[in-house]
Amino acid sequence: MKIHTYEKLWLGAAMVLIVALIATITYGAVGLGISMVDDEEETIDPDALDEDDRFNDPRVEHVGENEYEAYVVARTFMYQPDPIEVPANSEVTFYVTSTDVIHSFSVVGTNINTMVIPGEVSSMTAEFDEPGEYGVVCNEYCGSGHHTMEGQLHVVPEDEFDMTELEVEGDDEVAEDDEVTLNVSVENGMLDDLETTIEAEIGEETFEEDVTVEGDSTYETTITVDAADLGEGDHDWSVTVDDYEDSGTVTVVDDLEDDGGDDDE
């Protein structure tokens, strides 16, 4: 076969180029450890996500020192949870699946980008060194409202990040000879212990309790005050734990209108 010398030279150069391209990608994969979304995850029934431990409650979990897992559900035309909150200086593994059609989960301005296919779970691990706020878009056409499908990923400064949840249950109406009770529960989603103070205020009365909530557990306490001390009328109450606050109003009445009150089952 007759090939001109120049063209042989070009043939050689072209082969060098091709090998160099493959070598660069291989360096990225092996040298830098950039791994592809792959078949590592088990398949899942897209119609039964509510029976799956990870996706029945889309959320972020603390799974190790500076390690978090985010379970994300994409559906027409939204992401859950939204926003996704993780701390800076962390390593986050996203698990994303779809309940309906093919979507994507693409964090704008980053290389976090995956197709989301019903029946499959896309998993990706990324490190977030700096705080920042990112948009999340669906970049695969998923139906008539596709352009409205967006979410947020918030990387908050490490010292401002916690996974504390405060919940308070209080009575609405209490007889004057009874006690006003607030059932306080403080959930700590982090693996480390949470040292904090529960501060409560009912009317003029104040309470304070230093507590240690163990990692991945919930601390429950009850605050009581004699209704008589508050006196008849409406009394505002509030409970604060760090930056979280819950509040309400309790009414102390002279006497409950009938016997069907609090003692009745």
């Binding site: 950039i34 980053t110 976090i112």
Partner: peptide, 18 residues
């Protein structure tokens, strides 16, 4: 590409780094 981080990394490599 590499300037557009965060980038997806393998779990093994990542825990090694962290």
């Amino acid at each position: 590409f590499l300037g557009n981080d965060p980038t997806v990394v393998g779990t093994v490599v990542a825990s090694g780094v962290v």
